[in-house]
Simulated assay, not measured.
Amino acid sequence: MNTPKPGPPSGAEGRARRLPRAVVAVVLGLWLAFVICWELACPLSDAGVVPDLATCTGFLLAVLVLVGWLRSGLLRELRRAKEVARAAQDVLLRPLPARLDGLALAAGRLSASRGASVGGDLYEAVATGDGVRVVIGDVRGHGLPAIGVVAALLGSFREAAHDEPELGGVLRRLERALQRNLRERARDERPASGGADPDSPLTEEFVTVLLLEIRQDGEVLALNCGHPWPHRLGGTAEEVAAGEPLPPLGPFPLPAELPARRCLRLLPGELLVLHTDGAEDARNANGEFFPLREVLGRTAAARPASPASVVERVQDELLRHTGGRVCDDVALVVLRNDRLRVPAQPGAQAVAARRPCPEPSRR
Rank of each mutant, 00 (worst) to 15 (best):
V126G: 08
R140D: 10
V50Q: 11
V118L: 13
D130L: 04
V50E: 12
L103R: 06
V149D: 01
A146Q: 05
V126L: 14
V65H: 00
L75V: 05
A127S: 15
S113P: 02
G115A: 00
G131F: 09
A146M: 08
G68H: 07
L103K: 07
V65A: 12
R79C: 00
S45V: 15
A98I: 07
V50S: 09
R109C: 12
V65T: 08
D138L: 01
R71G: 14
L93G: 02
S111L: 07
R80P: 00
L66A: 05
L110S: 09
D138H: 01
I147Y: 01
Q89A: 14
A151N: 05
S72Y: 05
R79D: 04
G120I: 03
V139E: 04
V135T: 05
G68I: 00
R109S: 13
Y123K: 08
T128Y: 08
S117K: 13
V139G: 05
G68R: 09
L93S: 03
G73E: 11
D101R: 09
V149C: 06
A88T: 10
V91C: 10
L61Q: 07
T55H: 14
L70M: 02
V91T: 14
G137R: 02
R94S: 15
G143F: 02
G48Y: 01
G137A: 12
P97W: 06
R80H: 03
A112H: 04
L103F: 10
L53C: 13
I136Q: 03
L92K: 14
D138S: 04
A62G: 15
Y123Q: 13
I136H: 01
G108M: 01
L105W: 06
P51R: 00
A152R: 11
L153F: 10
V118W: 11
D130A: 09
L122P: 15
R80F: 00
L61N: 04
D90I: 01
A112S: 14
L144M: 12
G119I: 12
L64A: 15
P97E: 03
V118Y: 10
G108E: 04
Q89F: 08
L105A: 06
P51S: 01
V63W: 11
A112W: 05
L66F: 00
V67I: 09
R133D: 11
Q89Y: 10
C56M: 13
D52T: 15
D130T: 05
G155L: 13
L61K: 02
S113N: 08
R71W: 11
V84A: 13
A47C: 08
L66Y: 00
T55F: 12
P145K: 02
A106G: 03
V91P: 03
L70V: 01
T57E: 06
Q89V: 08
L74H: 13
G115M: 01
T55E: 06
D121I: 09
V135A: 10
G68Q: 07
A112G: 11
L100C: 04
